[in-house]
Design a protein around this nucleic acid. Structure first.
Lengths: 353, 353
DNA sequence: AATATATTCGTTAACGTACCCGTCTATCAG
DNA sequence: CTGATAGACGGGTACGTTAACGAATATATT
């Protein structure tokens, strides 16, 4: 059924009722000067009464503004394809809001090279964007960068991990501590008395990436609280190639033959899975992230649980938030923790990253 | 904020290049008659070349159409607040697309009264809507209703459970079988040899609601496959008041004192939790749905796991799909299975329904 | 040949908002 | 009283698309 809309609403109606032109109504709507106090109040009254809401379509259409947003995230490396997902989210958001007059410039840095990060931030600042989406892997450098953004009045949204200095328009990402805590809770169902738990950190920059540290902290906190922290082992592996990783693991497994649960604090869990698989250990393996290689090991039954936090959504949502803030001054949630999703062999096929 | 770029795109540019008026371009864009084959092909060529994408804003703004959608879901009862979530999703979608010229009429039926369902479907058909969102609790009646919809050429989207006759624009909801299968997989981690599993179905209409049946089927299938189905008990409870439920449970628990896992096939799990809590049984309890009362028992440690399928999203997504189909003839996924989310005490606070 | 009918196409006014530019009025200094 | 100035306001066009209406031309019918 296709009928005509004939609502008596909108600026035109307001203008009619107030006996002014729509231009005047427009002025008070945007809080611009050039309207007498009297008229302004009258118009505001009518707006209230009609409880007028601007037509977003017409608003965007008529606006000749164009917004330029910049995104800065790690490049997709051979080591991990994790950042592929946020990028997909960014691209989807790009596609959706492109026609609303939004231009998105994507920048990338090498997660193993601080310089590359700093370099990109400089380029971004020179381009003077209207808003920035940032994955702040390097804490100090990111803090410095965001401080400059604030000086320049450029709003920014953080994804994947937060920064200690506040001031972002929004943080969209995991609560790392709780994600570790949850993993521990899961483990508590799976372990029996006397069995040992092994925490595995794999990263070239373990101490710079609070991601790992926070997760481990949450994980341990659970067992501390339940007074069962004495059977937890841990190993830090600072080489990310398969051979080194397997060597380290092999060592610790010969040293302790009663390890029953292995908790890998990031997406590198597939490499541990490779070791477990080839050495035919009977352990429960828990790790992070919905990556192709991880899912394969889950389907094979080597990885038992994966904890995921919708990385694609993070990229998508981050951009949409920036857009809504800049285009409509919509209020944005200051902290948006992503759900902590638990994946197993039996529900991963239905997962939406 | 910079000035707008003067892109040479849009119907106007196409018309200019093809030496026709925009009206003609519009005709071929909408595949309407009244254009010679020659002109049509020429214009299509230019559209291709420019790879033109219509401006959705302008499109909706200029369209004087108004679409009327109807939704039919169970009313929120004292027995379960489950349907509160889809309703919230519907309301959110309503809010978002209202200004695009969409009117949404909400209808409700009593899940315990087939007549109320039939009655509402009649009213809906009389109102002759452009599209329908339906939660088809009663299979036969729903099949009859949807068949009428198809005769009348009214597209409909199903949520929460699918129908056997196909023909819907889309099904958005759980894969019930797999959700049961997943629960069984979880249980397999939690159970030890010799311990018993109890399946609990609670509903006044157990045989009409394939929801329960399908879940149980999936649950059992897992254990059949892994040759461990001999320790599964089951109880059907056709009264939904707390007292009756507790009586039945009490009976079966005295009969079998080695029940270690209880799997409740729907959101009524909180009533089982009440029994477990007050009778101080030491069992692992698994059930369905993110309801306030369920979460409370999870926080208390009585319910261990809840399986959820984003009911709010189902309502939201269903309406958005209808809208996109009707307004833009966008292609819609014929089957959109919701993720099978696992909630525990430690991640429920971050869940988005 | 005259008329009717079909086919193909263009003109134009919306849709609701943004904002440039110009006009009008009041006030005030000189 | 004149001219300048600033504040208050309206007119009008643009944004990209839709679609009603009608004009122009071609084809069929009598």
């Amino acid at each position: 059924m296709k009928k005509r809309v004939n609502e008596l609403t909108g600026v035109k109606e307001i203008a009619r009722r107030a006996n002014v032109s729509i231009a005047t109504v427009d002025r008070v709507l945007h809080n611009r000067k050039g309207v007498s106090k009297q008229t302004k109040e009258k118009i505001l009254g009518i707006i209230e009464e009609l409880n007028y809401e601007p037509n977003l379509l017409a608003q965007r259409l008529a606006s000749r503004k164009i917004l330029r947003l910049a995104t800065l995230i790690p490049e997709i490396s051979k080591e991990t394809s994790f950042w592929d997902a946020p990028l997909k989210g960014i691209e989807q958001a790009d596609k959706e809001i492109k026609q609303f007059g939004i231009i998105i410039d994507k920048y990338f840095y090498d997660q193993n090279k601080i310089e590359s990060f700093v370099e990109q931030t400089k380029i971004i600042l020179e381009s003077n964007p209207d808003g920035i989406l940032l994955a702040p892997s390097f804490i100090e450098e990111s803090v410095r960068f965001t401080e400059k953004c604030r000086e320049l009045n450029i709003p920014y949204v953080l994804i994947d991990s937060d920064l200690p200095n506040g001031g972002s328009l929004s943080y969209i990402g995991p609560n790392l501590y709780h994600s570790g805590y949850l993993a521990a809770h899961l483990v508590s169902y799976l372990i029996k008395n006397g069995e040992k738990i092994l925490i595995v950190n794999i990263s070239r920059e373990i101490d710079n990436h609070h991601h790992l540290l926070k997760k481990e902290e949450g994980f341990r906190a659970y067992f501390d609280k339940h007074k069962k922290s004495d059977n937890i082992l841990k190993i830090d592996i600072r080489d990310t190639d398969l051979k080194s990783i397997e060597k380290y693991l092999s060592n610790i497994f010969t040293e302790h033959n009663d390890i029953r649960i292995v908790f890998v604090t990031n997406s590198r869990v597939s490499k541990v899975a490779h070791f477990i698989d080839s050495s035919k250990k009977d352990v429960i393996l828990i790790g992070y992230d919905f990556l192709k290689e991880n899912i394969e090991y889950m389907d094979k039954g080597i990885i038992d649980f994966l904890v995921c936090q919708k990385p694609k959504q993070q990229g998508y949502r981050g951009l949409i938030s920036l857009y809504q803030h800049l285009a409509f001054s919509s209020p944005i949630e200051k902290i948006y923790f992503m759900p902590i999703d638990i994946l197993t062999k039996e529900n991963s096929a239905f997962y939406r990253n």
